[in-house]
Design a binder for these strands. Structure first.
Lengths: 230, 230
DNA sequence: CTGCATACCGGGAAAAACACCGGATTATTT
DNA sequence: AAATAATCCGGTGTTTTTCCCGGTATGCAG
């Protein structure tokens, strides 16, 4: 690198659970002058071990959803233990909750996997200088949540979580009451409480919420998809 | 390229709904001699239009799960309308059903997004020559399904699939009828029919089935998990 | 002791979901 | 012309869900 024009090369780590994607991103970043990929990890845990072993990148491209340790947890850890490392969240989900939570966890920007390569470059430049990278989505998400009461994830009791599991089956509330050894009125109480806490208006809403937020696992995700019209 | 050793360059199309991933893959493939990326698309529909406009790649790297038109449908279309185009499925799901269905739809190979770049190269070489690329996963998946009664997934009509989408929301059947511009009785008919076809006994059962079998996508799968007891 | 959260329960009534009876018009295929 | 499939619809009745009102008992922290 030339000695003039502030010629430093920023070190970037890629954290994503898909190796091919990491390799591809590494190629893309390699073509952007001023940046260099100095490390990769398949999840937050592995990355943290690398940091503890002495690696200190200037910036990490952090996937949100990963096994073992996800993006939010990783970003939080970084903010506490290595605040000089800038975080740019990179994900395929564009829903507001993800955005907000990553920003709250310390991410300086949020870019989608179907962004333009130009946008990636802009985001890198912005974040590496300590600024925040804003896309219209991020702005919108933040606008929609300022003023809102921070939206802490609701705290659920043991019984409520137990009830949710059953609510995601075809059992009626009466049958759930039997399984849980309580009266119908009691499960109705759980239902009411959960509708309030989770901001849903029907059992279907509860089920979708539970699956979305991984309160229940739908075991084998796969089945076979039914055919189209014939 | 030298004139000897069968020096042709194979044209590859990338079909994946994440632009950054496509660009990254394009870089990776560009570094493999003998291959050239000749086109990209964000879903099967767009790709098919490109083919109909005259594009004929030697091979397509086809994502399985995409909006608008998914990998299976796209592979099926290719087999019918452009059988000379080899298909290599590229996905993050390693479950058997996806594998089997893509193979059945005409894919010559199945590679995961967290594969090694070496594996990608091997897969390309294999598929482009008309052979099948086998990983242990694929072999296992195929072994596990031979002998099984094939279990054809139920055929759903357009309206039924439309109904299912709405059934996974908090709309009542009356409201669904309004959205779908038909009478309450008609959506009730869809419900009955689907309960029968999908072997469920309640709307919740239908919702869980639909999510399991990816008839509906719940956008961001991961949200934040509500807290434990306090 | 007081306040608070949890867990639990009863009864009544309206709305939604479910079940079963019947019917119809189109369009495509054979 | 007959058969098949997809779309659509009316009526009736039961069961379940949803939403109210009210309540008790326990444990735990300020």
């Amino acid at each position: 690198m030339t000695a003039q024009q502030e010629a430093r090369e920023y070190k970037i780590c890629l954290i994503d659970d898909h190796k091919l994607f990491r390799k591809g991103m590494a190629q893309l970043i390699g073509r952007i002058p001023g940046y260099k990929v100095c490390g990769e990890a398949g999840n937050g845990r592995d990355f943290i071990e690398m940091v503890q072993a002495g690696l200190t990148p200037d910036l990490v491209l952090l996937d949100v959803q990963m096994p073992v340790m996800n993006g939010e947890e990783t970003a939080s850890w970084l903010r506490q233990h290595a605040p000089s490392v800038r975080v740019l969240a990179l994900t395929m989900h564009d829903d507001e909750m993800h955005i907000i939570r990553m920003i709250r966890a310390g991410a300086r920007g949020y870019i989608l996997k179907d962004a333009e390569p130009e946008d990636l470059r802009t985001a890198l430049d912005t974040v590496v200088q300590g600024d925040f990278y804003h896309t219209p989505q991020v702005s919108r998400a933040m606008a929609n949540t300022i003023g809102l009461p921070a939206e802490e994830p609701p705290a659920l009791t043991r019984r409520e979580r137990e009830f949710i599991e059953h609510a995601c089956t075809e059992l009626t509330y009466k049958e759930i009451a039997d399984v849980m050894n309580c009266s119908l009125r009691t499960v109705d109480g759980y239902r009411e409480e959960l509708f309030e806490k989770l901001a849903v208006r029907s059992r279907v809403g509860l089920v979708v919420y539970a699956i979305r937020h991984e309160l229940v696992q739908l075991g084998g995700q796969g089945g076979t998809r039914p055919a189209q019209d014939r």
